[in-house]
Design a protein around this nucleic acid. Structure first.
Lengths: 119, 119
DNA sequence: TCGAAAGTTCGATTGTCATCGAATAATTGT
DNA sequence: ACAATTATTCGATGACAATCGAACTTTCGA
């Protein structure tokens, strides 16, 4: 049984959280997690290959932004909404609200099926 | 006379803004700018050498976070508070509020006089 | 038991960034 | 003119990160 590291609320660092959220792909992941409660990696549709998605999930987890729960062969990802709100009030909402209406998100969605290197 | 590039409000990108603010030194700079309206580079006290500070100021300017006004041999830096609020409501406040009370800020202030490489 | 499914890890590549010191540029005051 | 002040640019360095494909691990079903 794999043990996954999750930082404690007290150990969340603002700069690490901002860094983790400064990548458009990761913003998209987090944005999908806001709507659906729990997602498997496979549910999330981002324009990168599986191993890269895994890397991003790890980055988000280690920054304290998502929780990863193991269930069989799959991992269930969820946002650590309360923890983040406790530590950085208002932060996540303002970021995700801004992302929803951004040009960046539209571009990513357009690129959806276009995973480079698959051919 | 030097012309400094400042992105238009419509051209601000969330990920770039978050990236620019994901560096502790830059957070400290922005935090000083929130209190004092306009600062010269020299006014800002950060634990890095001048050229590095200049680099950070450029990063912040190009991300659209600060405005730089030339006056004689010095540059007056100020926060683009309204522009940011317009584009990303609540974002800057939540970030800066979180930074004020953070351990990261304290650490930086402790490191104040300790610019490595000066000896 | 064996294979399919879901993710992770690894190695390689490529690119970017934070940092420094030294050199340079621009402006003001003498 | 010249020197001092203020800040930028440049080149080098070392570190880290995003990405891919391939190999691996773990678990569930047939």
């Amino acid at each position: 049984m794999k043990v996954l590291f999750h930082p404690d609320v007290a150990d969340l660092h603002l700069s690490s959280v901002l860094y983790a959220l400064s990548d458009p792909i990761r913003l998209l992941i987090v944005s999908e997690l806001r709507n659906n409660q729990e997602c498997t990696c496979g549910d999330i549709s981002v324009p990168v290959v599986k191993s890269t998605l895994s890397h991003h999930a790890r980055t988000l987890r280690e920054a304290g932004i998502i929780k990863v729960r193991v269930q069989g062969t799959q991992r269930l990802l969820s946002l650590r909404t309360e923890d983040l709100e406790l530590r950085f009030p208002g932060l996540l909402s303002s970021i995700l609200d801004a992302f929803e209406t951004s040009e960046e998100k539209k571009q990513l969605l357009r690129a959806q099926g276009t995973v480079v290197g698959r051919f």
